[in-house]
Simulated assay, not measured.
Amino acid sequence: MTDIVSAEWVADNVDRLRIVDVRDGWEYDAMAHLPGAVSVPFDSFRTGSSDSEGMLPSREEWGDLLSAAGVSADSELVAYDDHHGVFAARFLVTAELLGHDPAALHLLDGDFSSWQLEHPTSGETPAVEPTDYSVDPPETTPLVDSDTVAAAADDPDAVLVDTRDESEYAEGHIPGARLLDWRELVDDETRGLLAREDALAVLEAAGIVPEKRVVLYCNTARRISHTYVVLRHLGFETVEFYEGSLTEWEAQDRPLETER
């Protein structure tokens, strides 16, 4: 499964990793990056297309992007950004949904700002040999549709989770959803994940426990990507991912509620 790894682990294993920087291209060029990192800007894989779900890229787009970045099917990937990992998590979830081995996917604990405090950066763009990346989505994924989401609110064994902020939630959320702003799981000082026990306490306070099936949504599936990676890292076994999120829900003219 996709996990979260420390800066020290990345530094110790850098020779066997393909490190992916998902910040804007100008940030990669002008502000330096992790040594050996390749640039795959967030906007380059957030296109959405007629032959994919939600904001996912098409198989062809994804394959071309990873091929150009020198990624092969057996590459072990670490992704990072400069926003507490939320954009990098979206890259990793996209990779998982489109068939990359989840065990070979890692999110840097922290982000570029925290990395550069204690580790070297580079202004050099590494030489990359293009690959022929083959996209092979798995038969089963954590993706669920709007009907499954609607039913989750009435299932005692499930918890429907809105990962947006409190003001967005108050303006309108899927009936029965609990609020968990994804940033509640982030330590503002380290810019990485809260300590394990602290993270589990935050989740339990929101009614999110490992014994339940967890169904996640936000607006466009970016923020739930971070929460998905965190929950899987913490050992939650059944975490479902509503790729369509509120964008699709509202397009289908489904109901919203505003009370807590």
Rank of each mutant, 00 (worst) to 15 (best):
E124W: 01
Y169P: 03
L105E: 03
E124Y: 02
T148L: 04
H119Y: 15
T131I: 03
L98V: 05
T131A: 06
W115P: 10
T94F: 08
D109M: 03
P126S: 12
T125Q: 13
V135H: 07
G123W: 08
V144K: 10
S167A: 15
D132Q: 15
P137H: 12
D155G: 01
A104T: 07
D147G: 04
P130E: 12
H119S: 03
P130Q: 10
T140N: 09
T125A: 15
E118Q: 13
V144L: 06
A153I: 05
L107R: 00
G110A: 08
A153L: 08
V144P: 06
T148A: 15
V159D: 07
S114V: 06
L108C: 06
F112Q: 08
G99D: 07
D154F: 09
Q116L: 07
R164V: 11
H119C: 03
A152K: 08
E168N: 07
E139L: 09
L98W: 13
A104C: 03
S167C: 02
D109V: 03
A150I: 00
F112Y: 14
D155L: 06
D145T: 05
G99V: 07
S114R: 04
R164Q: 11
P138Y: 12
A158N: 06
L105H: 09
P137Y: 13
S134E: 15
T140L: 10
T125L: 05
T131Q: 11
D162T: 03
S146C: 00
A170D: 13
D145S: 06
D136E: 14
H100P: 06
L98M: 15
T148C: 03
S113P: 00
E139R: 11
S114G: 09
E118P: 00
A104M: 09
T131E: 11
T121P: 01
G110R: 09
T121Y: 04
V161F: 01
V93R: 05
E96T: 02
E124D: 14
L107S: 03
E168Q: 12
D165E: 11
D132N: 13
V128A: 04
E124L: 01
L117H: 09
V159G: 11
H119M: 12
A158I: 03
V93Q: 02
R164S: 05
D132C: 08
T140P: 01
D147L: 03
E118K: 09
E168Y: 12
A152N: 06
G110M: 08
D162N: 13
L108S: 06
D145P: 00
L143H: 05
A151L: 06
P138C: 04
V135K: 07
D145A: 07
E96P: 00
A104F: 01
V159K: 04
H119E: 10
A104N: 15
T131M: 00
D101G: 08
A103N: 10
E139T: 08
D136R: 15
Y133R: 10
V144R: 14
A103I: 02
D147M: 02
H106K: 11
S146H: 15
H106E: 01
L105W: 07
T94V: 11
H119V: 01
P120D: 09
P120Y: 11
H106T: 04
A158H: 04
E168M: 11
A158S: 15
E129R: 12
D157T: 14
L117F: 08
L98G: 02
